[in-house]
Write a protein that binds this DNA or RNA. Structure first.
Lengths: 345, 345
DNA sequence: TTCAGATATGTAAGCGATTTCATTTATTCT
DNA sequence: AGAATAAATGAAATCGCTTACATATCTGAA
């Protein structure tokens, strides 16, 4: 008469479930679950039996069923704008890295800088019952964020926003822009052009403000003709600088609202036979990885974007687990490279 | 005495489920499900009632429950190596775009060019019961891929592999490298260096082969001292070119195994006071977005990587739905920009 | 030995959908 | 009007797991 707890010959269905494992190992489903989750003590005898059956049957727990039962999915949504963005990409990597080992998995979705898309993606994420959401900038209004926060914990970057279930994390764009402009002023430039970002982009607005503030602090009058608006992408930078050159306003330096614009500017200037930094200094914003490999390497403001991803993920996980977490970001930093130089008199 | 089908006052729990919607709307859960999925005819009367309650209660179907019941999650796994890769990023975007509107959602996971990580991520994806997986290159062996294909349909890029439940999609790296090298030969170069990729990277190997083939076809002897191995990243390009320069072998052109290496090469050359393309021509491989904004803009081989993402996603969805799909990719293309020039005698 | 108190294990009720099958209601045709 | 057929609806089982509760087994102290 065989012991009840001994493994038994049982016909194994194609779809191996926890119940099958239990039956084959000669224990109850509850026991298998407990072993899997470590939620209770189990005798070594059964544990070994179960673990070996799991291996033998190549059992893979169904995360859906688990999520349904637990009311928790161990996944968080990351609402970004463009999965291939060189800028936010770093943040995504930060999120991923911070999540590795926590058993949580990120679900990325792109809003394409389009409110409707963004709302749709958010709904999608909520449908999948993510345990929390990281919103990287984007176009959702503060009110919408607060509203979603009734459903799920949220960490949002690129704005200041407080409320129950919401943590916000932002880089000081104003300060960064001030630093960039100040750097040029320190090096003797007074005719400093600015290639701004989209007029409705919060980061672009703050950077423009920082630029103006630095000028003002230095007693340099603001000249609207030295400002051109672009779109945060390379081609826009080309267009903007061409426009500035065409206006025949003289300037000895350009502060670009982001690195990608700066790349376009550098290329366009070289096409015009204008040397960087000898004729015109260029300063960017972001410090993308490739910026240090531009010819000449780009002077820029480093944004702690990877750290931002990490911090966002950590803060969110903490919030999900009901733990307090102080989410703060390092300040932007001026990285001086070869694209800017002392103005020669 | 109220009609049974009229909306009724019912206390609404915090968690709105399909069952709650049904009760409030005065219909059965089955009916609500049918309306949601369009799986059967429902009278207009009930349909309106249900739809309005859904809106009123702000009901959001639980994707987990749905997945459990249907045995299908409407999600596909995308196993990439680095979520922030400028190269694969384009492919990810392609996947996302192709999926938009199909109701499917991509789940991205990064393997970090590390077999163990990759296996772990794959298991994770399978646990979440994705309906299919796209494997972007990576380190899994063909045998492993075929094995996973027993569980789930797979589209794999960067290799040729056929089998049940597997579609492979690859760019002709050999041909591309041949084209790049041939371009330099056509322009009179005979001393052509090659900065290769990692020696164990399949793409790098094929590109090296293509380079050698082109030389051979032109009757130019292969000189191993003109080949330096790098790591597909910018700093590696710098190191490699420095090494080549230090060897004092003369050469008039460099074919870099990818664009990122080429960036490093361009920077290092400029630091040495060597002009591109006047002294040395540089050709890359990939055609990353920024390549056309390098100074000088980089001559390179365009890989249809976005198209690859799109094709992979379409092929996978077709496979999931049991539809035949002819997955083919455009050939690599030579993009001539300013970093290469005719060799002056 | 025996019994109280741990410790280990099992039973069964959810979790929130879908779907089969049976039943009720509405049409159509004679 | 009444039978036969089609359309609409509902009841209940199911998907694969977790977990509260009940039960069985094992300690060691009396």
């Amino acid at each position: 008469m065989p012991h009840n707890s001994d493994p038994v010959e049982i016909d194994i269905p194609e779809n191996v479930t926890l119940e099958v494992v239990a039956r084959v190992a000669g224990v109850s489903p509850a026991t298998v679950s407990r072993i899997l989750n470590g939620t209770a003590r189990v005798s070594d005898r059964k544990r070994t039996a179960v673990l070996s059956t799991i291996k033998r049957l190549n059992y893979r727990p169904n995360a859906l069923a688990r999520g349904l039962a637990q009311g928790r999915t161990n996944s968080i949504g990351v609402l970004t704008q463009d999965i291939a963005s060189p800028f936010y990409g770093e943040a995504l990597r930060g999120v991923e890295d911070a999540l590795a080992g926590t058993g949580m998995i990120p679900l990325f979705a792109s809003g394409h800088w389009n409110l409707q898309d963004e709302v749709e993606r958010m709904e999608h994420l909520l449908s999948r019952r993510v345990d929390g959401v990281i919103v990287l900038t984007g176009k959702l209004s503060d009110a919408q964020i607060l509203d979603y926060a009734n459903t799920v914990p949220i960490v949002v970057t690129g704005r200041q926003l407080t409320g129950p279930n919401v943590i916000s994390l932002s880089v000081d764009n104003f300060l960064g822009a001030q630093m960039a402009t100040q750097h040029l002023i320190d090096w003797g430039h007074t005719r400093i052009a600015h290639v701004a970002g989209p007029a409705d982009h919060i980061d672009a607005i703050n950077r423009l403000r920082g630029y103006r503030q630095a000028l003002e602090d230095a007693g340099i009058p603001f000249d609207p003709d030295l400002v051109a608006h672009a779109d945060f992408h390379e081609p826009g930078g080309v267009l903007a600088i061409n426009q500035l050159l065409a206006s025949r306003r003289s300037f000895t330096a350009v502060f670009a609202s982001n690195d990608q614009s700066a790349y376009g500017i550098q290329l366009a200037l070289s096409r015009h036979g204008i040397r960087v930094p000898d004729d015109i200094s260029v300063v960017g914003f972001d410090d993308l990885l490739v910026s240090s490999y531009m010819v000449p390497p780009l002077t820029t403001i480093r944004q702690p974007v990877n750290e931002m991803g990490v911090a966002a993920a950590k803060a969110l996980v903490a919030m999900i687990n009901g733990i307090a977490y102080d989410a703060s970001l390092p300040a932007p930093e001026l990285i001086v490279r070869a694209s800017s130089r002392l103005l020669r008199r």
